[in-house]
Amino acid sequence: MARPSGRRTTDHGLRLPAAAVAEMRDHLPEVAEHAVTEIIEQVPSYTDAFSGPMGARIRTAVQLALAGFLSLASGRRGADLRTPGAPAVEGAYQLGRGEARSGRSTDAILAAYRIGARVCWREMSSTAVEAGMDGETLAGFAELVFAYIDELSAASVAGHDDESALTGRVRQEALERLAQRLLDGSSAESVLAACERAGWEPPTTLTAVLVPAAQVRPVLGALTPTTLRAIDVPGLEDDALLLVPDVHGRRRTALLRALRDRGAVAGPARPWEQVRTSYDRARRARLLGLGADTSDTEAHLPDLVLTADPDALADLRARALAPLADLRPAAAEKLTETLRAWLLHLGRREDVAEALFVHPQTVRYRMNQLRELFGDALDDPETVLALTLALGVPPQR
């Protein structure tokens, strides 16, 4: 088909009057100015961003993008008018990355593109009509203009997403390094510098929580986003270590609720720079097999205290229970259990019998045996203290 004189056509069948293209190109600076002005008026987050040098760069970018489109629309052979050229796409992509670094969301970017597209089309279509573009061509031109801008906005969103992901990874790595500093005994200056690099505001307290690897995601979902996760902590195999800010006092109840039935162990709340002590206690509780009934190490303080030095506890048991050493093992075990119950129940025979599932007379008989073996020592406060400590935690079988 012969092409009418003075018109350009593309593979999509769009035919643009050369005069209209030239006229629109002449008005691009004004179009860009009007678009940016309206974006500033309608998207508050851009009010300051588009002032000064940034505004000038945006106006130039709008002009270049539209000029690139007009170059395609005016007859570059084989061109797909819906697809911007590489420079325009790269510019839009970098714009999206810059927006992410500035802290603006993709909603703001897309709003700016919608407003800019509307303004650009209003101005360019008026120019095109004045230059003699017919209705059918104008409709096709509109479709391609908006498809082109859609492609640019998609490139900006991709840039925003990529920058956000990169920033997220960088910050996550900084947070992991901070957690490491908190645990490895680094100086206060080093820890504070790590806080600043990670953009992490120090809390009042931190609580160390050991969580099975399979439970980390649901637990993190129930905790504050400022929770730190320590990576590659020596001594941990199947657990992850979380450092949870400000769950001291009444807030601890909410923490324990989030950990319920997840096999986790929570250390005590400590001043944030001393969180290593919280981790040490949680790890000891885990090694001792505590936490089957509750994730709270505070519920196991006697066990933790009495097992702090296993060798000392073993020596104490041996010395305190020396009067039973010559008995047969079965007899020694029964008397040891009775003595322990007697100490814990403050000598109340009925309570001791109930705890041991025996008759009160059996308790009386066994206590007579114990008094024969220990003599007056069972009335000595120092001996009672030693026996209470020795028998406070049942021996590991």
Rank of each mutant, 00 (worst) to 15 (best):
V247L: 03
H248L: 01
G249E: 00
R251S: 11
R252Q: 09
R252S: 04
R252P: 01
T253Y: 11
T253G: 12
A254T: 11
L256T: 02
R257G: 12
A266K: 08
G267V: 09
G267E: 07
G267S: 11
A269M: 09
P271L: 08
W272Y: 14
E273H: 15
E273D: 14
V275F: 09
T277F: 14
S278V: 04
S278M: 00
D280V: 02
A282D: 02
A282G: 00
R283H: 15
R283I: 08
R283C: 05
R286Q: 12
L287H: 13
L288I: 04
L288R: 04
L290K: 05
G291E: 03
D293M: 07
S295E: 10
D296M: 01
D296K: 05
A299I: 05
L301W: 06
P302N: 01
L304N: 00
L313H: 07
R317M: 03
A318I: 03
R319N: 13
L321H: 06
P323A: 03
P323G: 02
P323F: 05
D326T: 15
P329Y: 00
A332W: 02
E333A: 15
R340P: 04
W342Y: 15
L343Y: 07
H345M: 07
G347D: 08
R348P: 05
D351Y: 08
D351V: 12
V352W: 06
A353D: 05
E354R: 15
E354P: 05
E354C: 03
E354G: 11
A355I: 02
A355M: 11
L356Y: 06
F357L: 14
F357M: 13
H359P: 05
Q361R: 15
V363D: 02
M367Q: 05
N368A: 15
Q369T: 10
Q369S: 12
R371K: 13
R371V: 03
R371S: 12
E372I: 01
E372M: 08
F374G: 02
D376E: 13
L378P: 00
D379L: 04
D380G: 00
P381W: 00
V384L: 06
V384I: 11
V384F: 00
V384E: 04
L385T: 12
L385V: 06
